[in-house]
Amino acid sequence: MRQSLLALLAKEPAHGYELKQALEQIFGRAYPPPNIGQIYVTLGRLEKDGLVRAVDVEQSNRPNKKVYYLTAAGRDALDIWVDEPSEGPRVRDEFFMKLVLAPMTGIADRMALINRQRRHYLGLMRDLNELADRTDREDYVALLLIEGAMLHLQADLDWLERCQEDLP
């Protein structure tokens, strides 16, 4: 979440609740709504690291609110993040560990593990289908996030098939 907050603050200074609303609005239903507490904790860390700074703004009839803005160091950190290629797909996988190790120790049958995992992935795919159906067709950001998740799941299922074929 650090980088997304830096990116939003690069656009304009904002207080915590505005950042929460902006994230919700941009990513829609596909993204779990950020918890306001987490946002303040993250902002606190960014402030400690010198990437953002806060000013108190007085409000009539209400307590002061803290408006955050990006520092030069924050701008640099954001540039580095944007310029770097992002992390590739996972290569280590907890399920694969189970699949390789469990039969060696006699804990579980490999076919049963694969079958259970396939059903789980298909259940997730069903959730994503339903999420896509409930998502506004104009909401391209959310729909693309969902499609990305679907394609990853499809790859996991294809890989599962390869495991089923090739593991002894």
């Binding site: 259940g123 997730l124 339903e130």
Partner: peptide, 19 residues
Amino acid sequence: GTARRRPRGTAGDVVELRG
């Protein structure tokens, strides 16, 4: 299974994990 019967691993989690 249906989504409701599964205790964890909702679509949102998938998006969060992979997104």
